[in-house]
Simulated scan of single mutants.
Amino acid sequence: MSSKITMQQIADSLGVSKFVVSKALAGKEGVSDATREKVIQAATKLGYFAQKNAYMKTVKHEQQPKTSRPGRQSVLVLMPNIRFQTQESLYWGRIVDGISAKLEKDGYGMVIVSEQSVDSFVHFLNPSGISGLIGVGEISTSLLLEIHRLGLPLVLVDHEDPLIPSDTLFANNFESVYRLTRHLIGIGHRKLAFAGSTDYSRSFYDRFLGFRSALEDEGLWDERGGGKENILIDVDGLRHEDAEEPVKQWLAKRLRTRELPTALVCANDMIAIGAVRAAQSHGLNVPAELSVAGFDNIEDAAKLEPALTTVHVPKEALGRRAVERLLQRIDAKDEPAEKILLACELMYRGTTSAVGRQSE
């Protein structure tokens, strides 16, 4: 008996028709985004995508509108408006600035698409006018599968998908937070906590792993006690306003039980800004009673009072390097995919200090 996973098996597991599964995997119209995601998840669990020739054949696009001027190829920058991923963002916008500058220098046009719907994306795209795609931030698996099915060169920035073979670029999240945490330990901190949901993004997860590894190397992880809730504040990094209240509640509990950490390492600057304000609302002195550090070095980090200790991500350089890698991929489509990590710089500012030392 063949062990090959078929569309019929996927359909049976979901209680839908094989026709629905076929349309969902082919990126065709007539299937809702919710159903398409369910089909992809079921296909993944059953091992459908691990098989050779699992992807559908490329569809024809002769009648789709063109997206570039004659004689000039363009690169499509895909940045779905998820979790505030927009050009106005102090983080994502700077990455797009780097992409734009590099493409202009190399003579390419740029088309920015914030579309999340697979159907709308397919109608918009004309592969003959697009040299390749750069995905910025989180992008749904269904949309990435459609891009992969079209066979267009693809580079992802600050995101990766286990189903999609592609080049990826990240800041060196693990090593940067590891170094930052070792620094805090080196200036006397023994009770540290991490603020940021490990399920929010791959970058957040890697930053948490760097934090944990530093504690483990210093023999502090097993000494913590009290459970995971004393070490990890599960909060997303959308806006500092969203982080402020959860951190405020978390700090209130630690103040009641006298389990307040001396340092808080945050998964990004938005969370860190919210954490500083939450600490100040409790009357805590930052950094004398609680040191706080962030990640990204957005423009608001330096404007905070006191200025935020953070990790500087070379955002424009991420964008430029993504373009360089895409152009290399266009010229050598069969090369192995690469995961590129850019080094970051630690920015020591006013929100951190040695244990027991008042800021000057």
Rank of each mutant, 00 (worst) to 15 (best):
S3C: 03
K4P: 00
I5T: 10
Q8S: 05
Q8A: 06
Q9L: 06
V16M: 12
S17Q: 07
F19H: 15
S22G: 11
A24N: 11
A26P: 06
A26K: 14
E29D: 14
G30M: 06
E37S: 10
V39R: 13
Q41N: 11
A54F: 14
V59K: 14
Q63Y: 12
P65Q: 09
R69K: 15
R69P: 00
G71I: 07
V77P: 08
L78C: 09
I82H: 12
R83G: 02
F84L: 11
Q85P: 01
Y91N: 02
R94Q: 14
I95P: 05
A101T: 09
K105H: 12
G107I: 03
G109E: 12
M110Y: 02
S114Q: 14
E115Y: 07
E115P: 05
F121D: 03
L125Y: 12
L125F: 15
N126I: 01
P127E: 00
S128G: 05
G132R: 02
G135R: 08
T141D: 12
E146K: 15
R149S: 02
L152N: 00
P153R: 03
P153G: 03
V157P: 03
P165H: 10
S166M: 13
S166I: 13
L169R: 08
N173C: 05
N173S: 10
F174D: 08
F174I: 00
I185L: 13
I187K: 15
K191E: 15
L192Y: 14
A193Q: 11
D199I: 05
Y200C: 01
S201E: 04
D206L: 04
D206R: 07
R207H: 04
F211P: 09
S213E: 15
E216S: 15
E216G: 07
D217L: 06
G219K: 04
G227C: 00
N230E: 14
V235K: 02
G237A: 01
R239I: 02
R239W: 08
E241N: 09
E241A: 07
E241G: 07
E245T: 07
L251P: 07
K253W: 04
L255G: 06
L255C: 03
R256K: 13
R256I: 01
P261Q: 11
L264M: 14
G274F: 04
V276I: 06
A279R: 00
S281P: 02
H282Y: 07
L284P: 03
P287T: 07
E289W: 03
F295D: 00
F295P: 00
I298P: 04
I298E: 12
E299N: 10
A301K: 08
A302H: 11
L304A: 00
T310W: 08
V311F: 05
K315I: 00
G319E: 09
R320W: 04
R320Q: 14
E324F: 01
R325W: 12
R329F: 10
E335S: 14
E345Y: 05
G350Q: 03
T352L: 04
S353Y: 05
R357C: 09
E360P: 14
